[in-house]
């Protein structure tokens, strides 16, 4: 009895981080397995031995759970979590992939910043040009108000288009990262499973 309890507690401890209902569901599965084993007169020790390491079982389930979640909804917190779970699975990858992720994210951030600045410059330029007649006496030259107004409206519009383009790019990168993580998890899982199957 004690060993079974110990195994389930160990499994639960290692599953921490995924939704509570999912954990309960998994523990229920394993309890059912123990119960049926007991009905058929199988010793608990033997069942525990046949299960293998609860840590490995938990990691397989967790990795699967995070990827499922990341696929279901696009949020920065989810992707970060998925990245760290994968990285946690394999220290090897952190060395290679973290700088790559960092570079990708900074390029993306720079592109967003550029789009916002162009858009903001366009909008403020438009507004400023509209008020040009008010302070035209300060300029030594005179121009038709319409010229800068339209030029700045064009600039603002291209800033907005740029921003929309950035969103598409971000989505594409997100999908690629999820794909990469899936590949990674299958590889890491296999490495851990060498003696498991």
């Amino acid at each position: 009895m004690n060993k079974k309890k110990h195994f389930l507690e160990n499994l639960e401890k290692n599953l921490r981080g995924i939704p509570k209902e999912e954990i309960n569901d998994i523990l229920e599965d394993f309890r059912e397995y123990f119960d049926i084993g007991a009905e058929r007169g199988r010793p608990e020790d033997e069942i525990i031995l046949s299960f293998g390491n609860p840590k490995i079982i938990a990691k397989q389930i967790k990795a699967e759970s995070y990827i499922k979640k990341a696929e279901a909804n696009t949020s920065a917190a989810n992707i970060t979590r998925a990245v760290f779970t994968t990285v946690g699975l394999s220290f090897f990858n952190i060395i290679f992939m973290l700088p790559v992720f960092a570079v990708i994210f900074s390029i993306l951030a720079a592109l967003f910043a550029a789009a916002v600045s162009i858009g903001a410059a366009g909008i403020s330029g438009t507004v400023a040009s509209l008020f040009y007649p008010l302070y035209s006496q300060y300029f030594t030259f005179t121009i038709n108000t319409a010229v800068p107004v339209f030029a700045f409206i064009g600039m603002g519009a291209s800033g907005i288009l740029f921003f929309i383009g950035d969103i598409y790019l971000a989505k594409l990168i997100y999908r690629l990262i999820v794909k990469y993580l899936k590949l990674n998890i299958s590889i890491v899982k296999n490495r851990r499973q060498i003696n498991e199957i």
């Binding site: 046949s50 299960f51 079982i57 389930i61």
Partner: peptide
């Protein structure tokens, strides 16, 4: 087989 692998597999 290692019996513990059945549940991660079934979940997948």
């Amino acid at each position: 087989i290692s019996e513990g692998t059945i549940y991660p597999l079934l979940r997948r």
